[in-house]
Write a protein that binds this DNA or RNA. Structure first.
Lengths: 155, 155
DNA sequence: TTATAATGTTAGCGTTGTCTAACATTGTTC
DNA sequence: GAACAATGTTAGACAACGCTAACATTATAA
């Protein structure tokens, strides 16, 4: 499949996300969701339709094709991973984390995405739940101080 | 000052970086460094000159103005912070980390940059040097296994 | 059912930023 | 200093992607 631009990936992801809630996705939904005009959506969707990523009849609903779903899910997965890192780990607010995740999702190397995922996995699979150093970091963010001296290996 | 595009920020940063080594910066240096043609550099530089960010006489050397230096240093600082996170912390290779940092540096919210900086500070100011959990993470990256059970608070 | 509102499409424009090709200047070498 | 190489500039094309304005279709409500 031809390489998609950032904008096209955004359209695909938006269709997926909207369709998680709305059953039918229309041009106006996408325009609202992405903050662009309907005419811009129309242009973008035409391209995606011509390239077999969406089905769309004039004045009708928009639907992802099998291939479109595949791509959209990839993009959405990257978005969620980045969001988790920015929001759950770095503690950024929901809107900032969501927007930055959206901007990062198109530019990062696959290796970087994988590595971030590894990092989140490292935290989440900690045998004792949230690791102490992470609590310490979050409290460091709030107070500017370390709540405890750094941890040492258990004796 | 007018808001600069990603491309313009890249030109400014590149001038700064090159001038750290070369004393004189020329159009060809920038073209090599950024992987674009000289004609593209010429266009970009003209804009920057018109907006008081660089000095450049036809067929001459390129120099940042005071304002240009200010902006370039900001961009470079973001780049270095991101690089440190991607390379030193996540353990990504130098080229991947450098390139992704370059892509991220233009899109992240100031809050996100600050927060990343905080995180790096949290690690670097650990009283005992590199925290054990970080070593554990790096070894987790290599082996896929945790070298130790998670740390507990000292008794 | 007809007027109006909402929605969707198309054409055409502006911006950004790259490129190629042609031309201009400067540097180098004999 | 003449010829050639290296470097720099300009003009013009193209791609992406947003926009406005005008028009087309569909939905809604009187």
């Amino acid at each position: 499949m031809s390489v998609l631009t950032q904008s096209k990936e955004d359209y695909l992801e938006a269709i997926l996300v909207i369709s998680l809630e709305k059953k039918w996705v229309r041009v106006s939904d996408l325009a609202d969701y992405l903050g662009v005009k309907m005419s811009s959506v129309a242009t973008g969707i035409r391209f995606l339709a011509e390239n077999g990523l969406v089905n769309h009849e004039k004045y009708g609903y928009i639907e992802l094709t099998r291939e479109g779903i595949r791509v959209a899910k990839q993009v959405y997965a990257r978005h969620k991973t980045l969001y988790k890192f920015l929001h759950d780990f770095l503690g950024l607010s929901e809107p900032v984390a969501w927007r930055d995740a959206c901007r990062m999702e198109h530019v990062l190397d696959a290796k970087t995405m994988k590595r971030l995922l590894k990092f989140l996995e490292f935290i989440e699979t900690c045998p004792e739940g949230e690791p102490l150093w992470l609590s310490n970091f979050h409290s460091f963010l709030k107070t500017g101080k370390r709540p405890e001296p750094c941890l040492r290996r258990e004796k």
